[in-house]
């Protein structure tokens, strides 16, 4: 066992956790959200960011509780609106790194409109979407990413909604970095998250996670291990051969492009406005 490696890294993780907040977390034993929390912390540590200059903004649901545990500037907002709160914060404090943590309900259902518009604006925010295919905090109702036919608390006969593809939605709306990983591939997830935080512009990282407690129990994957193995089974690296990809979700980086972010465009608006004002003043005086 590589407990030594684990011990070596502990101080750095502790450094980013709140010492005045009571642990354990609200999450079920074996929940994947804790893995995402650690991946985010390690990404921030890898980037060497100053905690004072990092904000974590979260929505509502199991993932929403993450903000309370980390020693950043943390804002636990209303359901689906985290990106809009984050937009205001980012524009007020452009020097801050703003990380938004959402669930699939936050990002694709109640906050779907904010998601596409924040992407279209290319707001410099890193959006981490923890996709556990269900509404976990309210005990397992079907969500916009629940696979067709899955049983849920509000779909006892199987869900008949077509699931959203978070990454394709983000790409179509204009996000400049889009990637997907699974909680079982921790280092990959960490790498994508670090890239998303570091990169200027709107970045989306979807991390597929296990809610064995609700989604799993209703769909023959009642333990964390069973559901994690299933997530591994239904996903495939983006680099895999076409025949291996059939019927599976891809993991990897789908978009990584450079475009001016909203603030850069807004600086130009300010420049134009001030130039026009100068001309007016000049005109009035002459």
């Amino acid at each position: 066992m590589d407990t030594c490696a684990d011990e070596r890294e502990m101080p750095s993780v502790y450094h980013y956790l709140r010492q005045n907040k009571k642990f354990p977390t609200v999450w079920c034993p074996g929940c994947g959200i804790g893995i995402v929390l650690k991946a985010i912390i390690r990404a921030v540590a890898d980037l060497g960011l100053d905690k004072d200059k990092v904000a974590m903004v979260s929505g509502i649901g199991c993932s929403g509780r993450m903000a309370a545990y980390v020693d950043f500037n943390t804002l636990h907002t209303t359901h689906g609106r985290a990106l809009s709160f984050a937009t205001g914060l980012k524009l007020a404090k452009p020097e801050m790194k703003v990380i938004v943590v959402m669930g699939d309900g936050d990002a694709m259902a109640i906050g779907g409109n904010h998601f596409i518009h924040t992407a279209a604006r290319n707001m410099d925010i890193a959006a981490i979407v923890i996709n556990n295919l269900t509404y976990g905090l309210t005990r397992g109702q079907y969500s916009p990413t629940t696979p067709f036919g899955s049983v849920a608390a509000t779909a006892p006969y199987g869900s008949i909604d077509q699931p959203f593809d978070i990454c394709k939605t983000a790409e179509a709306a204009g996000a400049t970095f889009v990637a997907r990983s699974v909680v079982t591939y921790v280092l990959e997830a960490e790498k994508f998250i670090a890239r998303a935080i570091d990169k200027k512009g709107f970045s989306v990282v979807e991390i597929m996670s296990n809610c064995h407690t609700y989604f799993g129990r209703s769909n023959q994957k009642a333990t964390a291990l069973q559901m994690m193995n299933w997530l591994k089974d239904i996903t495939v690296p983006a680099s895999a051969k076409a025949e291996e990809k059939a019927g599976k979700l891809e993991r990897g980086i789908f978009v990584d492009k450079e475009l001016p972010d909203y603030l850069e465009h807004y600086k130009e608006v300010v420049r134009k406005a001030q130039e026009m004002r100068e001309k007016e003043i000049h005109h009035d005086h002459s």
Binding site: S84, F85, T87, G88, Y266, V269, V270, A273, Q274
Partner: peptide
């Protein structure tokens, strides 16, 4: 913009209210 301050038109009033709270924070 003339004053170097921020104006933004949001996608709806829910987002507008959220954004002003975020900016105030």
């Amino acid at each position: 913009p003339v004053l170097g301050r921020t104006f933004i038109q949001m996608e709806d009033e829910i987002a507008s209210m959220a954004a002003i709270i975020g900016a105030s924070i």
